[in-house]
């Protein structure tokens, strides 16, 4: 490279220079990058251990340039608890999808949050089981067609989609709980800020932190990537509002007076 040249865009150190297996248009890649940038900026990459889930991000251990563990389905918060309790000096994060976290791993995530484990959970919500081929998730939208809800999600039988950020923010244990999205550049920038805050709370030994990030699944939604972004904006954002739900300083969302 000529000496005058200057890199203006490069891989974060915390992201390995390998080709990912994610589908074209999927926003997992953006989220990986945001997490990696935050690890770099906080200077914690060398003492970070990530926990990969079962789901589309099952191979996340190939992408983050940190020590990694691969958990069984839904158990990443338990595995993270084990790592953090064994080595409180490590920065521990889980990277989980909605089937992993909100269905099979509901117990582990709730209790991890309620114990106030000093770990950070990156929760990618794309309203569907991606890796197994597009089945209904607990987060699938009402009427949304999946391979196991061919006529659309029937909320009379399957219930309404679970809002994890809201649910976890009801816990009395202090925590940082927020929801972001990455389908528009500005939202990605704001979501990175949420991730930075989440990891910083852990670095400071303050509290459990979770950032739910709305994500697209063009392949299983059956939409071209740009339409998937529009679909997310139109159907998911109104039901899954973006913002901070809980901070260790600010307590819980205030209820309305009677």
């Amino acid at each position: 490279m000529p000496s005058q040249a200057q890199a203006v865009f490069r891989y974060p150190e915390a992201l390995r220079e390998v080709t990912t297996h994610y589908c074209p248009g999927c926003t997992h890649g953006v989220i990986h990058r945001l997490v990696a940038e935050v690890l770099d900026e906080l200077g914690v990459r060398q003492r970070t251990v990530g926990v990969a889930p079962v789901g589309c991000a099952v191979l996340a251990y190939n992408y983050f340039a940190t020590d990694m563990q691969e958990a069984s389905h839904g158990r990443a918060p338990a595995v993270a608890t084990g790592i953090k309790r064994a080595r409180p000096d490590l920065i521990v994060f889980t990277y989980q999808g909605d089937g992993d976290l909100a269905s099979i791993g509901m117990s582990e995530i709730l209790h991890c949050a309620n114990r106030g484990e000093k770990v950070t959970v990156v929760f990618v919500n794309n309203a569907i089981y991606g890796m197994t081929g597009g089945q209904m998730a607990p987060t699938t939208m009402p009427g949304q067609v999946t391979t196991t809800s061919p006529l659309g999600r029937d909320v009379g039988l399957a219930g309404e989609p679970i809002r994890m950020a809201e649910l976890i923010s009801t816990l009395h244990t202090p925590g940082f709980i927020a929801r972001g999205a990455v389908h528009q550049p500005l939202l990605a920038v704001r979501t990175k800020d949420l991730l930075r805050r989440a990891f910083r709370y852990q670095v400071e030994g303050r509290c459990f932190s979770m950032v739910e990030i709305l994500s697209t699944c063009p392949t299983n939604w059956g939409l071209p990537p740009h339409e998937a972004c529009d679909w997310l904006e139109k159907h998911m954002v109104p039901y899954y509002p973006l913002g901070v739900f809980k901070t260790p300083e600010g307590g819980d969302r205030a209820s309305r007076p009677l």
């Binding site: 251990v49 926990v51 563990q69 958990a71 069984s72 158990r75 338990a78 595995v79 993270a80 608890t81 084990g82 790592i83 953090k84 309790r85 064994a86 080595r87 490590l90 117990s107 582990e108 709730l110 209790h111 114990r115």
Partner: peptide, 26 residues
């Protein structure tokens, strides 16, 4: 040392996995 009463045996055994993976006797 550290004692954690887990929410289930499923969770407890996966906590073991994490701690063992971090190199500690567990």
């Amino acid at each position: 040392g550290t004692f954690v009463q887990a929410e289930s045996e499923v969770a407890a055994s996966n906590m073991i996995y994490g701690a063992a993976g971090a190199g500690e006797r567990v």
